[in-house]
Write a protein that binds this DNA or RNA. Structure first.
Lengths: 349, 349
DNA sequence: CTGAAAGCGCTTACAG
DNA sequence: CTGAAAGCGCTTACAG
């Protein structure tokens, strides 16, 4: 501890560009230009400065640079949580997206300031005003409407903001190609030989993607000359519980079914559990496919077929759209391509 | 788009503390003090300034404040990935930890700068030098040794750094109470009536926690008058594949077993899959418990018993230890408490 | 309790 | 190609 203290004191003096300038025998402005890679400085000088900086273990103070340039080189990522939700229990889909956003930002030379927000005392998106970030990416649950209204207002007032799957059309958004994905899922069931395919999902949810997926399902069902059927999920429950209850409602309805398309994986996991526990075997008695491609669906028994968005593309598109908004340019891309993950739960033997 | 442009131009002029000063009829220094809540300013003045700031929609430019104070109010969180690993496929345990770290930092008034790092071109922890963060929290896989060596060097050279489950003792670390957790898991199996309990794990892995868990297992086994047995996992594979192969090795060995303690959940999921596919029923033919409490284990069929660290405590301890390191204070806590998640995979009926 | 002034460490016109 | 100087927007001794 004591040695550390003396070390800490030695580090208290900060090496600045003036020190490097003295060391290299040039002016401070030249140091700044050389280190920034300004092509106007001669190669010889650039090397001399770089060498001096290395010797002194110098790094640019990016706070000072930012103050001068007005740019932060940082993007804020806000993850909206349910008010009562533990931070560790977030939807894994959200976490995957967070990972690819940070990766995409990094590749483009930006840092990412991440925060998890839920209640009103917790909502704060004024990163631009406080000069902490150049713009903001919003992801997370659509079920926290207060939070989305807060950010909608900020978006209206000119804040640079893009989001994943917004419940509102007046924000800049990116989403999975839900329609195409639902067609893919439904066609997959049809091709496997299933005929009485029920959709467990919603026409009215704030989750716009649920409606989009239901529409895609209907289109594929009609194209095959079959009849669509929807079990609407109950609001205000966990996805797993919604899935369980939808199965009970389906069974109680007497409606015949040989396969289920659940509009998200967490729903599908509840469906799977309820069916299995009540003696319906997957896929022998009932085929099942979800949507989102979360890891848990691969670990389910049997492994659950799903539709997976290209997460890497999703992160890149969110970052690129935000950078376009910041630059005041147009950015038309909105839909992330999806693909089929065919696993055992849809294998008709 | 055109309306937005004019708006953007109008916002181009930045409101500063001087503008607020003029509006409130006080000096700029008073504005700074009033907004910082300095108790020396009179209540009347403070209110007048706050009102003026609100009218002008003013926010402190935190870059400027930081330049002046030398503090960033930011903690860097670096997630170490495997070099070949997709950002979206990270261990869910890591993501849960990331969530609770960000939450704990936020409660303590700090922002979190998050980055995912893998290869050498990608490693950069010099947040302090560049004045981007006051310190760094390191989490993620222990399997990327290059990355850990890089950060070990930074830690040695005085950087403020704490990590989760370091492979090195000379860094400041926090870990689950692995010994107690393993005892909990093993006693749980013993109490359920299992007697031939095999551990699938490692004595030599860089993952120190694997050894700690194995030791806890041995202690509980010996205390019950039973005989321990370890199947050592093979290096360089995915955890799931390691689990599968360990089961094959176990079966090939002819060693009798009626339960398995897998030292992490991802391993346990591979074990579960291999056993189920080869006709061994869980828990009727073999009990199974993992460690880490990841979500996928709850969704497995049957749901997998596990040992769960208190993630909220883990995030808080990491942040508190880092803040202690930054302040030059001692912080003794290192072990995160764990608890048993008893599910079907250990239910002996 | 309040104000005038210095200075944090850069970048970037402006000269040469 | 390089240097001297201004200034980004704050906080905080120093006076009063």
């Amino acid at each position: 501890m004591d040695e550390d203290n003396s070390k800490a004191k030695a580090r208290n003096y900060r090496v600045t560009s003036f020190d490097v300038a003295a060391e290299a025998g040039v002016s401070q402005s030249t140091v700044s230009r050389a280190l920034a890679g300004d092509p106007v400085v001669s190669e010889a000088t650039r090397l001399r400065v770089a060498e001096a900086a290395r010797r002194l273990n110098y790094s640019v103070d990016e706070n000072a640079a930012r103050l001068r340039t007005g740019k932060t080189g940082t993007l804020a990522v806000v993850v909206i949580c349910r008010p009562d939700e533990d931070r560790k229990d977030l939807n894994p889909f959200t976490y995957s997206l967070l990972g690819t956003i940070c990766a995409a930002a990094s590749v483009r030379g930006y840092e990412t300031l991440v925060s998890f927000q839920d209640g009103p005392q917790n909502l704060s998106g004024r990163y631009e005003e406080r000069r902490k970030a150049d713009g903001l990416i919003l992801i997370g649950t659509t079920q926290n409407l207060d939070a989305w209204n807060y950010y909608r207002d900020l978006g209206q007032s000119g804040m640079k903001l893009v989001c994943w799957g917004s419940p509102f059309d007046d924000l800049e958004w990116i989403r999975s190609d839900n329609h195409a994905g639902a067609v893919l899922a439904t066609d997959h069931l049809i091709n496997a030989g299933f005929r009485q395919i029920v959709c467990i999902g919603s026409e009215n949810s704030l989750q716009r993607q649920f409606k989009e997926r239901y529409d895609g399902y209907c289109e594929a069902i009609h194209a095959a000359g079959l009849t669509p059927a929807l079990i609407e999920i109950e609001e205000g429950l966990s996805r797993e519980e919604q899935g369980r209850r939808a199965v009970r409602a389906l069974k109680a309805s007497g409606q015949p079914f040989d396969a289920i398309f659940a509009v998200c994986d967490e729903l599908a996991l509840g469906v799977l559990r309820e069916l299995t526990e009540t003696g319906t075997r997957i896929p022998q008695d009932c085929g099942l496919i979800g949507f989102d491609g979360i890891r848990a669906s691969a670990h389910a028994m049997p492994p659950l077929s799903s539709i997976q968005p290209d997460f890497t593309a999703a992160g890149a598109m969110l970052v690129d759209k935000l950078l376009a908004v910041i630059a005041g340019k147009a950015h038309e891309q909105r839909r992330v391509p999806v693909s089929l993950l065919a696993r055992e739960s849809t294998r008709r033997s």
